[in-house]
Design a protein around this nucleic acid. Structure first.
Lengths: 206, 206
DNA sequence: TATATACGGTACTGAGCAGTTTCGGAACTT
DNA sequence: AAGTTCCGAAACTGCTCAGTACCGTATATA
């Protein structure tokens, strides 16, 4: 998005943009492991098996590289089309809990942890992080709950906006601050102990 | 807690420990404004109108100073004795929302934001931060909900443990990631849109 | 083939900062 | 008063790191 591209590269060797993804992935890894301030350009270059100069040929600064890396995380999120549709809200919510999605969410949360300190200094990064990490999950919850309203399973008065944010925010709190794992058990207890009661359903309603 | 104090200071000028609080407060301010990595000892010393050497005479390192500063935040928290007792759960929860407590919580959250990146490197800091910032509020919620169960207002099956964490975690999510204010309106909507429905009460109850 | 550009690698520059030292003065003990 | 320790201020040391410059090599155009 914020790549360097100042005019007329006609002659000579062309930039190998297929490496961009490797570099951005390496940046995300280092970001998750050390945080923004602990992350160095040399670490990222080494991880991507690239030269430091190569990174600076493509991004003007460390900050821009990180912003691009975070924005790129957005890909691979849930597509709103192929969501589970089990017929019940609880069934849908539980169906979202898959080993793959747990690991993916954990990775994203570690990236988020590394970004927090930057968010107040770079407001656009806050937007990018929210759009890439939190919003996709909240959005899925909103859709599933709206479906439940449409089919008459839960009250249309339910505060979808607030309820959709519960699992992302509880998960981020648990990862960022408590440093405890967000596992299947925790997510189920959230569904049965908070979400289901809040929409007026009992847990056993499959 | 981790202060320097190696033996036998008998003669000469005595260390003025009344300044400790000023220095720790200054550290918290800088921490909230710039985050751990952006914070420098010189900033803290200047803010506290103290010499840098004075800080190093009292704490062995920047990390120890911060740990002490965070631990000191714990004071000033709610005492579990003088909690509101309005007779209804909603009344109690709403009574907790006072201008003072909002400002106080906001300040603490900004400190937390500055600490996040450190928490994985310093596990004891994670405990201190949780004990000083999150736990006091969660603890209050637990007590109020337990009272509601005891007086038969809500079901004893309510998942107090999870519900007590909702407002702290939603507030931290909102501050740390969304960068939106945690104001009275938001807290009320949390009570009426999530907590009350989840314990089986309607919002208008008191 | 000649020219131009990207590549990985390494060395360099300049700034910022944790932590130390030094100093003149102030405060306490005897 | 003499001796001791603390104080704030400022200079200093050593290291890390963002960003730049340069190298020999690889790959593209003409």
């Amino acid at each position: 998005m914020t790549q360097i591209d100042l005019s007329t590269p006609k002659l000579g060797r062309k930039r190998d943009h297929s490496r961009d993804a490797d570099i951005l992935d390496a940046a995300l890894e280092v970001l998750a492991e050390t945080g923004y301030d602990g992350m160095t350009i040399d670490m990222v270059a080494a991880r991507a098996k690239a030269g430091k100069a190569t990174l600076y040929r493509r991004w003007p600064s460390k900050a821009e590289l990180v912003i691009d890396a975070v924005a790129c995380m957005k890909k691979g999120a849930y597509s709103l089309e192929d969501l589970p549709d089990t017929g019940t809200l609880r069934g849908d919510l539980v169906a979202l809990i898959k080993p793959h999605s747990i690991v993916d969410a954990e990775k994203k949360m570690k990236v988020m942890a590394g970004l927090i300190s930057m968010l107040s200094r770079q407001p656009d990064l806050a937007d990018a992080a929210n759009a890439a990490i939190i919003e996709p999950r909240a959005s899925v919850n909103r859709v599933l709950m709206q479906r439940a309203i449409d089919r008459g399973e839960i009250s249309p008065e339910s505060d979808i906006e607030a309820l959709a944010l519960i699992s992302p925010s509880m998960a981020s709190y648990r990862t960022l601050i408590l440093k405890k794992p967000v596992d299947r058990e925790f997510l189920i207890s959230l569904i049965d102990g908070v979400i289901m009661p809040a929409v007026g359903l009992r847990a056993r309603a499959s």
